[in-house]
Design a binder for these strands. Sequence first.
DNA 1: CATGAATGAGCGTTCATTCAT
DNA 2: CATGAATGAACGCTCATTCAT
Lengths: 194, 194, 194, 194
Amino acid sequence: MAKRTGEKYDAIIDAAVRVIAEYGYHNAQVSRIAREARVADGTIYLYFKNKDDVLISLFSEKMGSFITEMEEKLREIESPADQLYTLIRLHFEKLEEDRQLATVTQIELRQSNPEVRRGIGEILKRYLDIIDRIIESGMEKGLFRPNLDIRVCRKMIFGSLDEMVTSWIMNDYKYSLLDQVEEIHRLFISGMGK
Amino acid sequence: MAKRTGEKYDAIIDAAVRVIAEYGYHNAQVSRIAREARVADGTIYLYFKNKDDVLISLFSEKMGSFITEMEEKLREIESPADQLYTLIRLHFEKLEEDRQLATVTQIELRQSNPEVRRGIGEILKRYLDIIDRIIESGMEKGLFRPNLDIRVCRKMIFGSLDEMVTSWIMNDYKYSLLDQVEEIHRLFISGMGK
Amino acid sequence: MAKRTGEKYDAIIDAAVRVIAEYGYHNAQVSRIAREARVADGTIYLYFKNKDDVLISLFSEKMGSFITEMEEKLREIESPADQLYTLIRLHFEKLEEDRQLATVTQIELRQSNPEVRRGIGEILKRYLDIIDRIIESGMEKGLFRPNLDIRVCRKMIFGSLDEMVTSWIMNDYKYSLLDQVEEIHRLFISGMGK
Amino acid sequence: MAKRTGEKYDAIIDAAVRVIAEYGYHNAQVSRIAREARVADGTIYLYFKNKDDVLISLFSEKMGSFITEMEEKLREIESPADQLYTLIRLHFEKLEEDRQLATVTQIELRQSNPEVRRGIGEILKRYLDIIDRIIESGMEKGLFRPNLDIRVCRKMIFGSLDEMVTSWIMNDYKYSLLDQVEEIHRLFISGMGK
DNA sequence: CATGAATGAGCGTTCATTCAT
DNA sequence: CATGAATGAACGCTCATTCAT
């Protein structure tokens, strides 16, 4: 069972994003997602193992393409400082241009059960790896202190960006995330620098 | 209704922490909390408005005393740099010495419904204020750059610490949070410094 | 247990009437009645066997004194026709002058459980007996048809009056019950007459 | 939601009648009705909005078809006196031939909450209208006094019939309602007549 | 006599998942 | 492949009653 592609597969995931964004995680019933996707309830189970699988897949699909895009963009940049800048900027840009997705991934999906959260954590590892590589590269090139604890820095960077976005959503998108890129970048560069 | 003090009030809150820590948020039924507190189901409703109120009160009680303790400790410290150090150390110390509470506040309660999350956010504001005051003080004393965006820095600090703790829990407390205090402190001090 | 007299006994019954009238049968909790009577919850159980007993006693006390009053008044009247007139008039008068009691006995207490309803029925028998005696007397005196089925007439009279009052309450006391006495009396007199 | 027809719709309503008749209003839990209808608990909510809706629908369905039948029968009758006779006879006939339904509508459903009672009242209006029309017709044709208060007479007729049936049930169907039709009819005809 | 804190049984409703068509 | 009617387990909360003080 559970073919993981096709027109309806995408329709269901997109419907899930819309429904969760509009009604909140706790009101995102399978039947509502099905209706929004113009599909029968049972059809969802032809494409996904269960509801958790829809949510994890949602995160995986959206985040996956984002991470891939991020990797491509960073590959074209030499300087770790510029890479970090781009990472922050893309992170904010992406979420700022799709508020629905931002709400869903930052707020709603965090209310999900342990199974889903574990799935999400798994996917985020790829993103953390990207951050790791930037830091490593900065250390190798002498831009950052040589004795930085990469795992600590990685968490600080991710935690900072994550909190920035969450806060921005909770404050009703009142300001622009992109305006904060410079400040954050500067703090990390001089914070990790020699 | 709803006396908010007394022996049973505390017993219920402590039982809630234990039950949630052991069985997870989604298996923390009112009746299970009651049983753990050696109290009848109905008794919970003599002390709390509803289940949400138990959870918010839990957070409020535990976080409240932590924040008060933090404020007292910081009042004895002059230097903003030392204050930041102490804040980080206490934050980690507190959660490291009570893993159950750490799990509940960092992992489980985040799965809660919007009402509870709102209550939690409200309580956290006091903590964010403390961070704000340290940054302001550092700017006034010429330790930090004068044009720092306080709100950005505050979120970065909180987001970093939060992610550190969450990560530590998700990795089964494998390492000591306190070992990371220096690194984090150094990064923020030089990151925000002139 | 359960002394059936005293200051508090009356206070509880009167409180019950007020609470039921104001909040409705389904919101007339024992604790609310106790509070209204300025008495502890447990005290109610010193005067009544249980909640049902309060309700039945309420009906019994109120209806009892009404029936006694009715009997006294009727004793002074000779003519069965006049007696019937007085019965109808007193029935309406009594309920019209105490709307709270009217609501409670006509509307709210009818939602009660079988036990209470049985108790109420028991008390009403005395009232039905009064009606019976009027009819009998009318037959004996040649005012009514000699072959009237007393039990049928009794039910028709009681049912008519009861429906009149219920309807009056449901229509927010918009009109006066006493205005209808003539019509009802005339119908029954000529209906039962030769 | 809530398809208001179909095989299961009928099954649930009929099950509700049986369960309420057998166990009483206060023991007619949704799950018991579901079991009796050989249907899952949740299925009830595919056909009804909630439990109240089941009860109101029950009354509506049963009473509705009764009222329709009544209207048809009366349409074939010219004389208001005969119409009244038929109304009384059908009223009793119907309830006498289905004791379960009689118990449920006369005794049990009257214990229901205000919402259900309101629904029932609404449905009964159609029945009261029928009585009105008979009286009006009788007045027009000179059979009844021209100055009758229709609303008073309507309530007396309905109240009388209602009380007759309730009494019959409370006395364990010991006698036949149909035996009383003549007496009641005679009383009203001569009571309202010139 | 009086109190009122504590008890715990009981129930309407939701919703992820299945499966006959 | 697709449907959507049907399932049934699960749970927060209320409130009449008790009993230690």
